[in-house]
């Protein structure tokens, strides 16, 4: 019996070692391959000199086919850390980019939001899968330290993702078709505003008791985005996209103060405070996201503003 047991354990051990070696090898190859191709697929059209980054608020609000010469790379559930690493690579490869818009909604800087976007299992797995090859040791360490299991899961999934991106980059030279999971305008059809308001009403009591805390990592990486833009001589504009009045009315003074203090720590960057941009209910998908009707109207408006360069005037209005 003992011999059988030892044989069984020996084979399991051998199998385990083989698996670890194989995974390490696959990771090294895929990582090396993708890094070789990176300058090629991060090079976007020379006509594009404006980039929109951020989370789902920007993702659903800006239709980059309407805003001339722009590219939307915002993605749902994106923390500033991921926006930073994406921008770092994009700005390195594209000297023609002159302006970066970064989502700067009231809730974005909250600790609650940071815990969700940066350290929750499903977000980590999804983002590490997509962006592991863009992260440096410090950035990986931050995530790993806080949730190592989710990081490992995302890391394993990133191997296959790297292979896919690499294969696409071999087959095509169009960066938009290679970086399909890199973010972009999300066309939302329909309107779930009433349902969302009903849902918010039901959860009202649960959330009202908590005092808002600032998310330190979110703040840190927003500042790093600002620094990066300055180094690259790119203009950074903080963009607070339109929100439904139901949402705006529920933003407490403490949240606004937090938001303002972060904004004031970035005096060299502009702000477009358009959270109360006048839009009818039919333009919203839910209380914080625009549907395609709203995105069309808002993108047209933004296009006019950008090309008539009224951003400074807007900032004064907002403040």
């Amino acid at each position: 019996m003992r011999t059988d047991l030892r044989r069984f354990l020996g084979k399991c051990l051998l199998f385990g070692v083989l698996m670890v070696l194989l995974i390490s090898l696959l990771f090294k190859i895929s990582d090396f391959a993708i890094k070789q191709k990176m300058p090629q697929f991060f090079k976007i059209s020379n006509d594009i000199n404006i980039v929109f980054a951020g989370d789902s608020n920007v993702e659903c609000s800006i239709n980059d086919s309407i805003v001339k010469g722009s590219l939307n790379i915002a993605q749902s559930g994106e923390a500033y850390l991921y926006s930073y690493v994406k921008l770092r690579e994009l700005l390195d490869c594209n000297k023609q980019i002159k302006t970066v818009f970064i989502g700067f909604s009231f809730h974005e800087i909250l600790k609650e939001k940071e815990d969700l976007l940066l350290f929750q299992d499903s977000y980590i797995i999804e983002k590490i899968k997509l962006y592991n090859y863009l992260l440096n040791k410090t950035e990986k360490g931050l995530i790993f330290k806080n949730n190592h299991l989710a990081y490992l899961k995302g890391f394993l999934q990133s191997i296959f993702n790297n292979v896919v991106v690499f294969a696409k980059s071999c087959a095509s030279t169009d960066s938009r078709s290679i970086l399909v999971d890199f973010g972009g305008y999300l066309y939302l059809y329909g309107n779930k505003l009433k349902e969302d308001i009903r849902l918010q009403e039901n959860t009202k009591q649960e959330s009202s008791g908590k005092s808002p805390e600032k998310g330190l990592q979110q703040e840190k990486y927003l500042k790093m985005i600002s620094q990066l833009c300055r180094q690259k001589s790119v203009r950074l504009i903080l963009l607070n996209t339109p929100k439904h009045s139901y949402y705006s009315n529920r933003i407490t003074k403490e949240i606004k103060d937090n938001w303002l203090s972060v904004r004031n720590s970035l005096p060299q960057d502009s702000l477009m405070e358009l959270s109360s941009f006048p839009l009818s209910d039919s333009c919203y998908y839910d209380i914080t996201h625009l549907n395609c009707i709203g995105a069309n109207l808002f993108s047209k408006y933004l296009n006019e503003q950008i090309y008539f360069d009224k951003t400074d005037a807007l900032e004064k209005d907002g403040d």
Partner: peptide, 19 residues
């Protein structure tokens, strides 16, 4: 046989769904 097992594990690890 081992190749099939490794294939299964790789599919679980690299392409498995969320939690």
């Amino acid at each position: 046989r081992w190749l099939i097992y490794i294939g299964c594990i790789c599919l679980i690890l690299f392409l498995g769904g969320g939690n």
